[in-house]
Amino acid sequence: MTTLSLSMRDSATMLRRNLRHMQRYPSLTIMLIGQPIVFLLLFVYVFGGTLGNGLGGGGGRAEYVGYVTPAILLVTVCSAALGTAISVATDMTEGIIARFRTMAISKASVLTGHVIGAFIQTAFALAVVFGVTLLVGFSPTAGVGDWFAVVGVLLLLTIALTWLSVALGLAAKSVETASNTPMIFMLLPFLGSGFVPTDSMPAWLRWFADYQPFTPVIETIRGLLLGTPIGNSAWLALGWCVVLSAVGYLWSKSLFAKERDR
């Protein structure tokens, strides 16, 4: 057997382990899916009427559902990333990694298992949350090509945030720390164009909101789903995703190597 096939087999074993954890302890997955759904219901049914009227189209709540859906999808990805950081930190602090190190397995397979497991968890969470957005009245106008593009953007963002959260999980000294540090991801959709247009914000905050990574991602997904103009948001979104993925991957790799050499 080649090194690559052995590595793939080990990664598949680690993935199975992670999926079994998700199955046996569904409370974390439920919480990760529940959080964006609570935000969705709160912003659509409690604030949707007044925020929708402020969008300019005068469509009220019905218009606001379409406006807020991309942000809710991003919150879902961020929420799943939080779960990844927690599960990586749990493995790191409970000594199971030290145990794996004594076995004849591919060292990278531990992280690969976490990353692919996180992908599956995120995909499941996105499907459930998107289903709820349809139930509360979201009606996208996207064509087949647009849908592929939406999936592509969400996939890239998931890669970026998953690797970053793996790094944060590796860097954390405790599970509590790992559950707090990725909260910054959760905050970013709020401090962008996710829930309200940036031109309703004060100048200093608007500047930040316009130039932070999540705003172009939100604008791209919104444009693809609703047919609104995207401009150069798509390229900015791709650029941010690639940069964040590279940072997360390299940081994770160096932290894991450091941990391995200890």
Partner: peptide, 13 residues
């Protein structure tokens, strides 16, 4: 802070 600075301008009360 969030409601005043982020949503405050868009919420009509």
């Amino acid at each position: 802070l969030m409601f005043v600075y982020v949503f405050g301008g868009a919420i009509k009360t």
